[in-house]
């Protein structure tokens, strides 16, 4: 004889298992391509292309990596290191600039009243709604006039403007959550407004700023469409664009491509892991209201 409590417990169990299964399936669907890429990066090309397909890898090798970095017997001759440096410099610089502007702008939108505030905010958001690729032609023409084609600076500017609306929007939201009275209390306690910002509001918005930073970095790091238009050589080519080097007219070097894809994925993963502590640091706003 099952009591109501027992039946409720069973129902909860079933629900929990169902939820777990659904999550698992979703993760499988989402992760499988990634997993395949990572696996392929460590397999020889002929195993990847074998027919019928070999599901369980039989041979694991670091050759693909050695190859694209120019070591070992069969060199591919793709300047991965240069691409990597370009990607890093461009993504880092544009992220830092977008964050500085995002923090300043987000704070201003959250705290100050000024003319055309709503219009300006809407404008920023609308600008973000325009697909970047739609701007590629005008940007291309402009950049070629002023000599920013195939320059790191050219991409940095593009990525900053791509990211700023988002960083402002996100950081504005975080500053809005912080009651103004905290800054006021700090000012009564002896701070200048500037000190109150750095000692109170900035630390409290840190998780939001970190999140904005991760998103900005990933956007710049992964961007392909605009970069493929605006870069030409090792001076500015980024990793995603470099990936196309593996496609020759008649062949595609899947193994090398996957190895490079792993190189693209790893820094993004590392960064996300480093910052996730901040993302979920669960800053409780317990100091304000019960």
């Amino acid at each position: 004889m099952s009591t109501i409590a027992e039946r409720a417990a069973i129902r909860r169990r079933i629900q929990a298992v169902g939820l777990w299964l659904a999550t698992f399936l979703l993760m499988v669907i989402m992760c499988l391509p990634g997993l395949w890429v990572v696996l392929a990066a460590f397999r020889p090309n002929r195993e990847i292309l074998a027919k019928p397909p070999i599901w369980v890898p039989q041979q694991l090798t670091l050759n693909n990596f050695a190859k694209i970095f120019g070591f070992g017997s069969d060199q591919v001759g793709i300047p991965v290191l240069a691409y990597f440096t370009n990607s890093m410099v461009i993504a880092m610089t544009s992220t830092v600039i977008a964050l500085v502007i995002g923090v300043g702008g987000g704070y201003a939108f959250a705290r100050f009243r000024f003319r055309f505030k709503n219009g300006l905010f809407l404008g920023l958001m609308l600008f973000r709604a325009v697909p970047g690729i739609a701007l590629s032609l005008p940007i291309f023409m402009l950049w070629s006039r002023i000599g920013l084609i195939d320059a790191q600076l050219g991409l940095i500017i593009v990525y900053v403007s791509l990211n700023v609306p988002f960083t402002i929007w996100l950081i504005d939201g975080f500053f809005r959550q912080i009651p103004i009275s905290l800054s006021e209390a700090a000012q009564v306690d002896g701070c200048t407004r500037w000190q109150a910002f750095w000692k109170i509001e900035f630390p409290l918005a840190r998780s939001g700023i970190a999140a904005a930073g991760v998103f900005a970095f990933l956007t710049s790091w992964n961007e392909f469409a605009l970069a493929s238009q605006l870069t030409r050589t090792t001076d500015s080519k980024t990793l995603p664009v470099g990936l196309m080097d593996f496609t020759a007219q008649f062949t595609i070097d899947w193994a090398g491509m996957c190895a490079m894809a792993v190189i693209i994925i790893v820094p993004a993963l590392i960064l996300t892991f480093l910052v996730q502590k901040h993302l979920i640091s669960g800053l409780t706003f317990g100091g304000v209201k019960g």
Binding site: E184, A185, V188, G190, L283, G287, V288, K289
Partner: peptide
């Protein structure tokens, strides 16, 4: 405010959460 040498207690307490 910082030069007035006053203290204030706010309705929402405004304690620094961090």
């Amino acid at each position: 405010p910082r030069k007035r040498n006053i203290s204030m207690v706010f309705q929402n307490y405004a304690l620094y959460p961090h």
